[in-house]
């Protein structure tokens, strides 16, 4: 089957991309100013202590060996051990990177999932209806309001929501400090405001692209043909335009979902939400290289995976690829 082989090809390409990205991540971390050993031990440390500490962390090895060590263990699922909490104070209190990241990643995925469940269907419905009643007042209102939310920086949207829904009418908590052991309902309640902020941001983008993708198709001769066969406007959109618009819509959706995972640091900071974005920022400032690398790799993998899924949807909804001559 042509489709299966295309998908397999895409998958392999995705893996290759991931490999190249891992090289870039590793390479760019070499350019981070300063050195972890010096950063931890302070300027008072003797050269011997610094050297010993570097040896313990493996920093004395040439970079290509360190790269292969790292990527080798990543492939076995081992992301290494965090630099912080190491034996400088005598006791080794360091934790494995996986242990650090897992709960944070889970939080981020929870927030992303919760947002996506609301935002994606909402955006599709708004986009489709706006295309259906294009140039009507409904269309203009939807367009203008989404343009407004997309125009403000997300931290601004976040603070406005805190002001309105957290302070003036205290419907939701302003702090989204979720903890382990909370019930599902409690979590949803806590993350309502950050989720709403993100929803406002991505619905705008998604809705506008959905509308554009459909309207773009409405000029096709087969749409006119459908109209001349007496198809109702709703059926023209849903049955004749939409099936041909899935590929561009999937691409935009993938882009936005990826953003929900990797690009929400600002929103996490505003709501003090313990997500993976904050973890990465902290790790960068404390030069915790294994954590930074692991986060970057997870982000890259998310991007690649989501785009891969969008590609597959594009292929699976293209009859030319699905039903070759």
């Amino acid at each position: 089957m042509a489709v299966v082989s295309t998908i397999i090809k895409r998958l392999l390409l995705g893996l290759l991309t991931l490999f190249v990205v891992s090289l870039i991540i590793f390479g760019s971390i070499q350019f981070l100013p300063g050195d972890f050993a010096e950063a931890v031990l302070g300027q008072a440390a003797t050269t011997e202590t610094v050297a010993a500490f570097r040896k313990e962390l493996g920093l004395d090895q040439p970079s290509y060996i360190r790269y292969f060590d790292w990527i080798g263990s990543v492939m076995t699922g081992d992301f290494g051990t965090s630099f912080s909490g190491r034996a400088a104070s005598g006791v080794d209190r360091s934790r494995s990177v996986a242990e650090l990241i897992a709960p944070r990643l889970a939080n981020t995925l929870f927030l992303a999932g919760m947002t996506a469940v609301v935002a994606v269907p909402l955006a599709l419905i708004l986009g489709i209806t706006a295309a259906l009643w294009r140039n009507s007042y409904y269309d203009r209102i939807v367009n203008a309001s989404t343009l407004t939310t997309i125009s403000f920086p997300e931290f601004f949207v976040a603070y406005i929501l805190v002001l309105l829904l957290g302070t003036l009418w205290a419907v939701f908590p302003s702090l989204a400090d979720v903890q382990q052991g909370m019930s599902f309902g409690e979590r949803v309640y806590k993350t309502a405001l950050p989720s709403l902020t993100l929803t406002l941001v991505i619905v705008a983008h998604l809705m506008r692209m959905t509308r554009a993708a459909i309207i773009n198709l409405l000029a096709s001769p087969y749409i006119e043909m459908a109209q001349l066969k007496g198809e109702s406007p709703m059926r023209v959109i849903l049955f004749h335009a939409l099936p041909n618009a899935w590929a561009p819509i999937a691409t935009v959706t993938a882009f936005n979902l990826a953003y929900l995972v990797v690009g929400v640091v600002v929103v996490e900071v505003v709501f003090v939400y313990p997500g993976i974005g904050q973890l990465m920022v902290d790790a960068v400032s404390s030069r915790d290289i294994p954590v930074v690398q692991a986060c970057a790799l997870i982000f890259a993998a998310t991007y690649i995976l989501l785009n891969l899924i969008a590609d597959v949807i594009g292929i699976a909804t293209n009859p030319r690829l699905l039903h070759p001559k």
Binding site: Y222, E224, H240
Partner: peptide, 10 residues
């Protein structure tokens, strides 16, 4: 143009 006037998806 029949090629353009048939919906490619059906």
């Amino acid at each position: 143009s029949a090629a353009a006037s048939f919906n490619p998806a059906h």
